[in-house]
Write a protein that binds this DNA or RNA. Structure first.
Lengths: 336, 336
DNA sequence: CTGAAAGCGCTTACAG
DNA sequence: CTGAAAGCGCTTACAG
């Protein structure tokens, strides 16, 4: 049996059934204040009777916008972004917005392409962790009056909002924690490709220099294997390193892998401090001391910033800086 | 300085500049085979000169569809879904589709609401891990000729495709692994709310029964804390349990937490096998023996299934079952 | 308060 | 091969 094609119900069908014009139906559905209550009731009845659902595509064209926000991250499979995306989705959903997810793999070209799509789709706003903070398409979005809020790293266009964590300060905290515990040879697993990690590296280097210690960092480019091999190199160097700061959670995983492979005890033989607080950090071997970002709070702030812009309540850009929180567990080897 | 409002360029602007009709511009842009090559060249020049980009919203209305696929999961922050979403995004992107991300928190109501949005937006297809496999909106989607492919768990509507892993078989493998290692008292951390976990539980129970062992499971509802408390209860019971199977990765994390808290050595005092292979599993304490799903392959299959439907190349529904892969590491305590 | 009409920016039969 | 015209399904000044 071939299924009969059911023609979708349009606003004019509802209007006909209710005995009013399509304009009136539209007004009722869009909460226009002034509609005769008898008409209103009949419209509502007709809507229900027919199971009418407005065609979003038509609404979008008419209004020249889409009730969607674009979320652009470099890797949704990284817990940092997964947690952020989840929080953003929750905040957006409760405001009636949907999330268009854009995964860039850290490629400027993919970011460009996605931002172009977001502009073409006339999303209400964009939240992005920029792979390419100076991309023209960011300006193009803003030209279209589509608000943009950056996280992790600000973008160069001064019209964009931003919410970033104090990466430098967090690294200072981590470094001091280890210095105060008596460590003199502290290594840092870095990633020159990531702005956040570079900021952390800078905080580490300055803190080391300030107390006359020699910084010693190695780049690992964020894949777990690279974190492991950077760790190995650091261990093989003549530095006599006794403590390690992992620039991000991939590096921490890599460091753990290398340390486990060599049967080096953490924290007894090697202290470790990491950034971010993915679900596994508290049950790692040993439980990881971390500097955690307030991801939920950042997500809410970003959606709020977007909301202000969407409603035209603010013209001047804002840059929020939020603090990390130190969560001392076992890996740093200090009781506190 | 107030920025001048730049009126967006429309197809008629391009047509005027190129000295042709809007229809011709449209044909050139949509690769219609037969357009005079002189006209074609002039259109392309005009497009470039004006920086014209077709208005997607108008295209969507006209075509009554959107180049988007909806992806519906219960928790993007769970590595299982994060990895799946990433793989789906990659596969979709290379086919020119975008991903509308829908996070349901496992709530039937949120699933309903999202599927309604996806229908209203006339997405090209939907991939979902169903919270509510019998939701009417799934049928509504299919009525609109929007293909649906389920994963993790099939949906009841026979017109939907599905890609599921052999959860039952994987649990049989896990249980036999432990039985062969000599364990007689094997506990299972379950979650009656999750179809996948229930399937695994069934495989475990049958395998235990088949060799005359007494199954012993405790529900934990998937939050890490609950996994931990279920583990504690199992340890406190009089069963004398020597091995544990964690029904999913949250339960595994909870089990590890409880085991660490009690200083119970894994695998010496307690063997552990888990499902899925999140990034941290290989560096957990100890590295976890797992049954891993071929997530990437599942994602590709699902996008392929969608693609066949979108192009109308297939009418009869398909259900694919894929196998887990056993990855023996240290937590099960068998050298193999 | 309400309807007729225009229009959002495209695409696509239709006619030539 | 190409253009004029209709139309996708809404919303919203405009007039009454």
């Amino acid at each position: 049996m071939v299924k009969a094609e059911v023609p979708p119900i349009r606003i004019r069908d509802v209007a006909a059934l209710a005995g009013v014009s399509p304009a009136t139906v539209s007004r009722v559905l869009n909460m226009a204040p002034s509609v005769n209550s008898a008409d209103r009731a009949r419209v509502l009845t007709a809507v229900k009777a027919l199971g009418y659902r407005p065609n979003r595509l038509a609404q979008n064209l008419r209004r020249q916008k889409t009730e969607m926000i674009g979320v652009v991250v470099s890797d949704i499979d990284n817990p940092h972004f997964a947690t952020m995306v989840r929080a953003l989705e929750g905040a957006a959903y409760s405001l009636g917005y949907r999330v268009l997810l854009c995964n860039t793999d850290g490629q400027a070209e993919k970011q460009r392409s996605y931002l172009e799509v977001l502009a073409a789709e006339r999303v209400l706003g964009v939240v992005l962790s920029p792979s390419n903070p100076a991309g023209d398409e960011i300006g193009a979005l803003l030209d279209l009056r589509i608000p943009v809020v950056a996280f992790d790293r600000p973008v160069t266009d001064p019209r964009a909002d931003a919410v970033v964590a104090d990466n430098r300060g967090a690294a200072v905290t981590a470094t001091k924690l280890l210095i105060n515990a008596g460590h003199k040879h502290i290594g840092f697993l870095s990633n020159p490709d990531l702005f956040t990690v570079s900021q952390r590296l800078a905080g580490y280097e300055d803190t080391m220099a300030a107390v006359g210690l020699r910084p010693c960092s190695l780049p690992g480019y964020s894949r777990i294997e690279e974190g492991a091999s950077a760790t190995s190199k650091l261990l093989d160097s003549s530095e006599g390193i006794t403590a390690l700061i992992a620039g991000n959670n991939s590096m921490a995983l890599g460091a753990l892998r290398a340390l486990h492979a060599r049967k080096i005890k953490v924290p007894e033989e090697m202290a470790l401090v990491a950034f971010d607080d993915p679900i596994w950090a508290a049950v790692a071997n040993p439980p990881l001391t971390v500097l955690a970002q307030p991801i939920e709070q950042m997500a809410e702030s970003m959606v709020d910033l977007l909301q202000e812009r969407i409603h035209g309540n603010r013209l001047e850009p804002r840059r929020l800086v939020v603090d990390f929180e130190l969560r001392v567990r076992e890996s740093c080897g200090t009781a506190q």
